[in-house]
Nucleic acid binder design. Structure first.
Lengths: 337, 337
DNA sequence: CTGAAAGCGCTAACAT
DNA sequence: ATGTTAGCGCTTTCAG
């Protein structure tokens, strides 16, 4: 079988506890023996058995966290991948592995949260009324939610401040002189489902509309070319015609731009466009798009850091909203230019 | 602390071994006691401790597999997500969890492959000369590679038959009467790096060109609008001018179509287009695209099934190439129509 | 059909 | 500074 710590101890001519302590550094070991142990480890190719270690230690640590990611089809894959990537890399930075669970596998969390399989959980794409939140809260394991549920219980949350993002987009356009703004948002079902970010963005947009005296018309769209075109037509047809568009729907964005081009509407001369999406998505369009950026990498990193803190020691519940920032890529201008 | 099998045994008035057997079904237990045990489990909310189970069992099974996924930026996120999703869902179907490792974390595989943390490994995006292959082979753990390395050792592989895919695309166009075909492929660095699929597709395309008497000109492109436009211009400028394009570069595809539109080239009247990409990507373009489809879901599912077989019992090395199929979405026609 | 008991590989008191 | 030993929660002989 595999080489155990007993083999190492024997090879080094010491007891198992000495070998264990020499490796963990949890008590002083003479330089000489420590070197002998390390030599034995190297020679035999010893690898600690993670399971046994977790079983035996006083404060069992699996050195693994679970990540519930929206793997269902139809979700915005680029953003999801950015979050997942950032989370995995940051976890590795902390010496943690990541166990990937599907979004709806509540049973999976319960299975995995028990018995030191994982030390904590990161949950992506949390809806306002999310059945997973209560279940997770009941587990009493460290957890960080990406999104803002109505009742987070003792769980901590981190997310982009989508309300501020919505405001920022509209205020930017209002400051340029736009008085009528159309919003191409996620499909209605997202807001109906109470998906937190969609609801909050809509609220921010509406608030800023009121505050700046700008009329705002929001339509939902799926990610297809046809759906996006229909949404553009819908929002432009409504009188008074909007002179600017806010697009918070990543897959639809290229199709929105294509539809505007097909209609002969130049950006930004005829219609200004502000997207709410990650920087690289905005930059990668056929024409670069001014955007309120979703700093997926930053948020993912923050989530892991918060989780690590909570695994290490009891911590008060905390909600962190990341302030949005707008990057001008030239797709907006005054309405009459 | 958490409720253990000893608590269950006590509550049911049986010994721990009886409780264990009642739950595992590994020996006959009277109906009556089995029900008492199950009642105790339900009442106490008992959850088996995965680590302890793995430690104790004769054939330690972590019921977890590792997945090395290309999480670096710039990779084709949609396809990656499709694979990851299919693999996670299929793993859950087999009662397995998935530990997500980054592509280059060779150290991670060694850490995790030992000590029943994972029972096997699925490796995505394997290059022709991939340093991970030898490392994995040396580990002697069940592993399935997505891609075709030059020297797979005792590891099994599964992938789309990209050579056949390249042939299929060109043969389809040749059959329609095209004699000059341009190929917009992945960036040159992919082929230089020997990334298996890019090399194989290029070979298939070249073979079919020879066999059908069709001239083939291949250019690499990154995924940006500018890069794709440059690639299109390059390939079209070359005399004799191609009357059809094969696009094997998912992020570039929308930009290729946009560039053709901008040049006033209608699809398929002026230029036919065949993509090599997943079905939904082809269908989601501004105009649907005829495509040789990459059945990501099928391949991912197959990979997990093969891995599960190899975890269960010794199996001979096996390489499975999935035959491609072309779905006509109307973006091709004869060159003179 | 059921119990008792010996470990799985490791850590952490408790001894020197 | 090092050794001895008792478990962690579970499976699986070995004995009834």
């Amino acid at each position: 079988m595999a080489v155990t710590i007993a083999d190492v101890a024997r090879a080094a001519g010491v007891s198992v506890s000495t070998a264990s302590y020499a490796l963990s550094g949890k008590r002083r070991i003479s330089e000489a023996t420590r070197l002998r142990v390390e030599a034995a480890v190297a020679e035999l190719g010893y690898r600690p058995h993670a399971g046994a270690r977790a079983l035996a230690s006083a404060t069992p640590r699996a050195r693994t966290v679970a990540l519930m990611a929206p793997l269902r089809a139809g979700t915005d894959t680029a953003v999801v991948m950015q979050f997942v990537t950032a989370i995995v890399l940051r976890a590795r930075h902390h010496g943690l592995d990541v166990l990937l669970l599907t979004q709806d596998d509540v049973d999976g969390v319960e299975r995995v949260a028990h018995g030191s399989v994982v030390d904590g959980v990161v949950v992506m794409d949390v809806a306002t009324h999310d059945p997973r939140v209560a279940a997770l809260d009941a587990l009493g394991r460290p957890a960080v939610l990406l999104g803002l549920p109505a009742a987070p219980g003792r769980l901590s949350c981190v997310d982009l401040d989508f309300e501020a993002a919505g405001r920022l987009a509209v205020e930017h356009l209002a400051a340029l002189g736009h008085r009528h703004v159309g919003v191409v948002a996620h499909a209605d079902e997202f807001r109906d489902r109470g998906t937190s970010f969609a609801v909050r963005l809509a609220r921010g947009v509406a608030d800023a509309g009121r505050a700046t005296g700008t009329s705002v018309r929001l339509v939902g769209s799926d990610g297809t070319a046809a759906g996006a075109a229909a949404a553009v037509d819908d929002v432009l047809a409504h009188a008074p015609a909007p002179t600017a568009l806010v697009v918070h729907n990543e897959p639809a964005l290229p199709h929105v731009l294509a539809r505007l081009a097909a209609l002969g509407r130049r950006v930004p001369e005829d219609v200004s466009v502000v997207a709410v999406c990650p920087a690289d998505v905005a930059a990668r369009q056929s024409t670069p798009v001014t955007a309120v950026e979703i700093p997926a990498e930053h948020i993912g990193t923050l989530a892991v850091d918060m989780l690590v803190e909570r695994i290490a020691e009891e911590r008060p519940t905390e909600t962190r909203l990341v302030a949005p920032s707008l990057v001008d890529r030239g797709s907006t201008s005054g309405p009459l230019t």
